[in-house]
Simulated assay, not measured.
Amino acid sequence: MPMLRVGTLAGLSVLVLLLAGSRDAFAHAVAEGDKGYILEITGVHILPFIYLGAKHMVTGYDHILFLLGVIFFLYRTRDIGLYVSLFAIGHSTTMLLGVYFNIGINSYIIDAIIGLSVVYKALDNMGAYQRWFGFQPNTKAATFIFGLFHGFGLSTKIIEYEISPDGLVPNLLAFNVGVEIGQLLALSAILIVMSFWRKTIGFWRHAYSANAVIMCLGFVLMGYQITGYFVNS
């Protein structure tokens, strides 16, 4: 077996084991300490909610995997900004409206869909839809639509924690600002790594394998949530 395949499988195995060690890694769950803080406070707390939003984004494996897939083959800053903005608009819209209007979705179902978004984007990067169906789906529309689902994933969790209505709107807006800050931080780290990798001769040789790993991780996320849904139903 070539060294690339061995390394890919080993890396995938390590990532799966690390993720499997925590329920939070597979969903939009908020850490227990943060959960307690959210439950206890009332009133407007701008900076703490900005911090919580940023923390959620930079530790959200599903967000990071999806963003990695989105920007994998994007080189121009304008294109990266456009796609990330579409994702941010979708994510922000459903997160804010979902909490404000108390629109909750079963967390296992929504997180399985979020795992599906990772699979979808990896397959898109691998050219699967053109080979299978003979056409290319609208990547901008897909990024926006899956952004909506990512936002519902977070709003569902926040609703479960029964955040105080006192100061709800400014706290939610602050949380959303934090999410966007966290997204920029995560995206910057991804782009730095990608910029170095793209300069190597092995980028195009290994790009397909890298997206296959992303796809497998998306299936792991989906499988975990679907199993949880039936086990806990």
Rank of each mutant, 00 (worst) to 15 (best):
F101Q: 09
I226G: 08
L4D: 14
T156W: 00
A186D: 08
F66H: 01
L15D: 02
F152E: 02
G53Q: 02
S164M: 05
P165Y: 11
Q136T: 10
E162R: 11
L86E: 09
N138Y: 11
Y229S: 05
I103E: 06
D166W: 07
N211S: 14
N171R: 09
R205M: 13
G153L: 01
V213P: 03
L82D: 08
F49T: 02
G98C: 09
K55W: 04
F219A: 09
I80P: 01
M1Q: 13
I110P: 00
I201V: 14
F73G: 03
G182A: 12
I113E: 07
I38A: 03
L96K: 07
F196W: 15
I64S: 07
R5W: 12
G81P: 09
G43A: 12
G33I: 12
D111A: 13
Y129R: 06
G36W: 04
Y100Q: 10
L221H: 03
T8L: 15
A29L: 06
V70I: 15
G11F: 11
L19Y: 08
G127L: 13
G202P: 02
K140E: 14
L47C: 10
A141H: 06
R198I: 02
I110C: 01
T77P: 12
I181S: 03
F219R: 04
I80C: 05
K121Q: 08
V220K: 01
F133Y: 15
